[in-house]
Design a protein around this nucleic acid. Structure first.
Length: 570
RNA sequence: CGGGGCGUAGCUCAGCUUGGUAGAGCGCUUGCUUCGGGAGCAAGAGGUCGCAGGUUCAAUUCCUGUCGCCCCGACCA
């Protein structure tokens, strides 16, 4: 491709609303342009990258034995009503009516549609297993789109859905997809990690996320420093850190007139935050309230809390009035120690909070906290559960090493759904004995659009993007210097361009006749992995200047096409 | 959805407080010079000041409404 004919849309200045580096660079490099909130047009340069990622995903899915389909993005409401998700999904689901007043949605995901497809066509166990996938535009009306295409409302997604006669086969395919995803991200050329995850809105039993590791990631991951244990913070298990010591102090009431948070109380009493306990009061599943006890330095994990059988889902905090009625004081002074004769609110304690002895907590009396409180003596022995977020330094749940926290960008998610959707949509097939069986189902998503942004987050420098070869918009950029004066530079560049092109290399020739400054600035910004500079200086010694985008310095190479090709193969 | 902010040239912004019919830098076009890391000089093109009302002799400026966009907020006991 000749740059003089390519609609390169690089800019020196950055549009004001770009916060993260990938958004900034995608705008500056001219990969995308914004159309509306969370909506982006892909320009030729960006689209080439997007399609490269898409091609890798498609090739690996095909290789894994999945079959590509394409379903409409618009889905009749009936299917979503049948699965129950019409009511479960909130305003994130884009709904609309056609001219006849029929209701539709734009699919944010397609479990229903593919299950519907499969239940019509699949009648026999001989047709299973089956894995359908598609690469298609999805729409999710995000509360707050941000970070460019990283969290847009419209995005390209690869979603796959598999059907199986039994759980063992589902697990087999799940592992197959896990291996496929690993191949995909390896081929893309990005550093990633598979982590245990919460299955969220899709539902199901077991799931793992694939994260590109980047400091700007929106997700926190807990990874072991000694084993391959890795989990999203939402799903990282925690357990008791020690056994509880015997009570050694008498419980004592202390005045804390304005200190409402554990931090303030700990500072006032000059005790470690780790020896304080806070209560978070939520609605109980069986009605009424339940208090969640968390160590002062820990953070409640809402996903875990919501899953607990005694906690109402969705997690709902008690109102101040409800707290006042139940505890007899305002929030800020709550604790698990109830005076005799009062109606104690049931307490569910996180393992770490439950192993504290002589702890500090609210006195259930405005302006006072307790010091030297103990479970089983002052407070009732609580039911315990895993309720908190893991923190750096926690022992790894697999018993090997300790956890550290890293940031990641979720680019893939695989689920064992079980019979969630096949049951809801009444899909059955006949087994070998002629009996109707409800198939097991798995689903597997990859955010194709997001991969592009995530790779940039991981691979950039102060000058621009540093593409891995596999998804770069072009592999080689030829920069002839002083073409208005040097016929040799111009002709040599043309020759190299033609020969690389003939060799099947995606090559870009900067024939715009720019001065070197702007030419190199564009080259670095758009991040083409290999650059060949051709000028009189080098040609005098029969040399090209070659520089990898990710290398610190350039090197001189023989001025031949073969020399360049050899470097590309390396 | 609550709170805050912003809509003026292709981009980044100034002007508005104190109304008098619009500017800078970058980019773009042309010419000359320059030419190994975002050049210089000169001449030019380019704006319904988001939209709709209102006040006024006069509105980019003041008022009201509306649309769009951005930021913060669902871990607090």
């Amino acid at each position: 491709m000749r740059l003089s004919r390519f609609p390169l849309a690089t800019t020196k200045e950055t549009p004001a609303d770009a916060e993260v580096v990938s958004h900034r660079l995608m705008l500056r490099a001219g990969m995308i342009r914004k159309l509306g909130s969370g909506l982006y047009t892909w320009l030729p340069l960006g689209l080439r990258v997007l399609q490269k990622v898409e091609a890798i995903v498609r090739a690996e899915m095909n290789r894994a034995g999945a079959f590509e389909v394409l379903v409409p993005p618009e889905v009749p409401a009936e299917l979503w009503q049948e699965s129950g998700r019409w009511d479960k999904y909130g305003p994130e689901l884009l709904r609309f009516k056609d001219r006849h007043g029929r209701e539709f949605i734009i699919g944010p995901t397609h479990e229903e549609v593919i299950t519907d497809l499969a239940r019509r066509d699949v009648r026999s166990y001989k047709q299973l297993p089956l894995n359908y996938y598609q690469i298609q535009t999805k729409f999710r009306d995000e509360i707050r789109p941000r970070f460019g295409v990283m969290r847009g409302r419209e995005f390209l997604m690869k979603d796959a859905y598999s059907f199986h006669m039994d759980e063992a086969d589902l697990v087999r395919e799940y592992q197959n997809m896990r291996a496929t995803y690993t191949r995909i991200f390896n081929r893309v050329g990005v550093e990633f990690r598979a982590v245990k995850a919460d299955s969220g809105a899709i539902g199901g039993d077991r799931s793992e996320e694939f994260h590109v590791l980047a400091n700007s990631g929106e997700d926190l991951l807990a990874v072991s420093d000694q084993s391959n244990y890795a989990a999203n913070i939402e799903a990282a298990e925690t357990r008791a850190l020690s056994t509880r010591a015997a009570a050694s102090a008498a419980v004592e009431r202390v005045a804390t007139p304005t200190q409402k948070t554990c931090e303030e109380v700990a500072a006032l009493l000059k005790v470690a935050l780790e020896t304080t306990v806070k209560l978070i009061v939520v609605k109980a599943r069986e009605g009424g309230l339940i208090a969640l006890a968390i160590r002062g330095d820990h953070v409640l994990n809402t996903v875990k809390a919501e899953k607990h059988p005694r906690v109402a889902a969705p997690l709902t905090l008690a109102s101040d009035a409800e707290i006042q009625a139940a505890f007899g004081c305002e929030p800020g002074f709550l604790g698990p120690v109830f005076a005799d004769g009062t109606n104690a609110v049931p307490v569910l304690a996180d393992h770490a909070a439950a192993t504290l002895a002589d702890f500090v907590c609210g006195a259930n009396l405005a302006g006072f906290h307790l010091r030297g409180a103990n479970w089983g003596r002052d407070a009732a022995e609580p039911e315990t559960a895993d309720l908190r977020n893991a923190v750096a330094g926690d022992p790894s749940p697999d018993g090997q090493g300790v956890l550290k926290l890293v940031r990641g960008i979720e680019v893939g998610h695989i689920f064992q759904l079980g019979k969630l959707y096949t049951n809801a949509l009444k899909m059955t097939v006949l087994d070998a004995d002629g009996k109707e069986v409800t198939p097991e189902m798995g689903c597997y998503g990859i955010g194709v659009t997001r991969i592009v942004a995530a790779v940039i987050e991981q691979r950039n420098d102060d000058k621009g993007i540093v593409w891995p070869d596999a998804i770069a918009p072009f592999r080689v950029l030829i920069c002839p210097i002083g073409t208005d004066k040097s016929e040799a530079a111009k002709a040599t560049a043309e020759k190299l361009y033609n020969e690389l092109h003939t060799a099947g290399i995606e090559v870009l020739l900067d024939d715009r006749g720019l001065r070197p400054g702007p030419m190199f600035a564009d080259a670095d910004l758009i991040g083409v992995p290999h650059r060949v500079v051709i000028g009189d200086k080098g040609l005098a010694q029969n040399q090209f200047e070659y520089k990898r985008r990710d290398a610190a310095v350039a090197q001189m190479i023989p001025a031949t096409t073969e020399a360049v090709l050899a470097l590309l193969r390396a």
